[in-house]
Design a protein around this nucleic acid. Sequence first.
DNA 1: GGGACACTTCGGCCGGCACCGAAGCGTGCG
DNA 2: CGCACGCTTCGGTGCCGGCCGAAGTGTCCC
Lengths: 216, 216
Amino acid sequence: MAVMEALARLLADRTRAAFCGALLDGRAWTAHELATHAGVAPSTASEHLTRLVEGGLLVEHRQGRHRYVALAGPHVAELLEAMTAFAGPAPAPRTLRAASASEAMARGRTCYDHLAGRLGITLKTGLLELGVVTTDLAVTEPGIVWLKELGFEPSSRQLSRACLDWTERVPHLAGAAGAHLCRTFLDRGWVKRIGTTRAVTLTPAGDAGWRDLGLL
Amino acid sequence: MAVMEALARLLADRTRAAFCGALLDGRAWTAHELATHAGVAPSTASEHLTRLVEGGLLVEHRQGRHRYVALAGPHVAELLEAMTAFAGPAPAPRTLRAASASEAMARGRTCYDHLAGRLGITLKTGLLELGVVTTDLAVTEPGIVWLKELGFEPSSRQLSRACLDWTERVPHLAGAAGAHLCRTFLDRGWVKRIGTTRAVTLTPAGDAGWRDLGLL
DNA sequence: GGGACACTTCGGCCGGCACCGAAGCGTGCG
DNA sequence: CGCACGCTTCGGTGCCGGCCGAAGTGTCCC
């Protein structure tokens, strides 16, 4: 249990948790951006980042005078989402702005590299009705063919994986298949980021595309 | 991320982590037993238990002057194992006794309600070859029939679930199916606990039984 | 080359929390 | 009925760790 405790200790801090939350958008952030985001001094942020990198949660990429950090991989995102989902629903937001942002996230968002929120659930439901996945979110044989038609190339990464949604409390599709679909939809302009946040929305083109595929 | 942080904070303590580790055997422990196990005063243990119960990780059951606590369910065990697996291999044990105990756990153990360790991997491999589960550990149609012959009754609980093994670094079978198999093997005397620990071993009867089923 | 900037290291401060022992409460047993 | 036992509550103590600012290093740009 000593190793589990060390991991928990790493996440049991307001500032480090805020860093991880920000990095869940899947992008790389600079140390300065994260410091501002969390409201701490650059020196404080620097120390936290070192600890998170040493703990294997983050990877860093030095470029000139910048230190870019990102989640070390999908497995980190999955861990964070699993813990968030376990911990239960977040307390209700206090301000109107926060409530609106929270509602946008609940409607649809990326979870590192795949779709989550109600949009993720809609996708999952569609895939289920098409027979691409089973109720346990395992990809079926015909499902693999279906995915390949969307340009999917199987890799060594686990094909599908259930990721418990922290707003909907229902598992949604993660893993290689979930990541590929998310990337494809973003590339095609079917799903679009709202501003620079993790929140996303289905565009009119996306609505049409999903209907074409039989997802809606 | 505030909720995730609160959960992490709960696990980020030596004593509370020790409690959770002990409770991973799936039994209910008294406050006194846990205090002794972790080497703290009863008063300290009492406070920790209250926090763990309030955090939803443990459930308690008052009986006379005893306070029994247990993990709140399989989802807690799965979370703990996931975090342990993520954190990587435990540091090498220092003493001979610890090394021997650690080796016994690595050979085979229960993970709350299912089998883990090399024995868990052997089981998974056998189930895979029999076509009961897919490589993603989803139960197949014939697999459900196979399980029913072993007395399995489907319930609302997720049928199967991958649980990353912290000694073997490979997913093994958890979920309702994994729990049923573990219970069945223990009932039949095919798998036996070593002393009162989580470590288990395959008995000669179990070896024969598994061969009969085609698992070996 | 000089100045702005991103980041790091170090020292010191401060708050939170894990811990214990003492005292109190309820239960069970002789 | 009284004592033993398990647990809880409450003060008090001590340490760990998060925080900042100041000073230092390396990078970029003018």
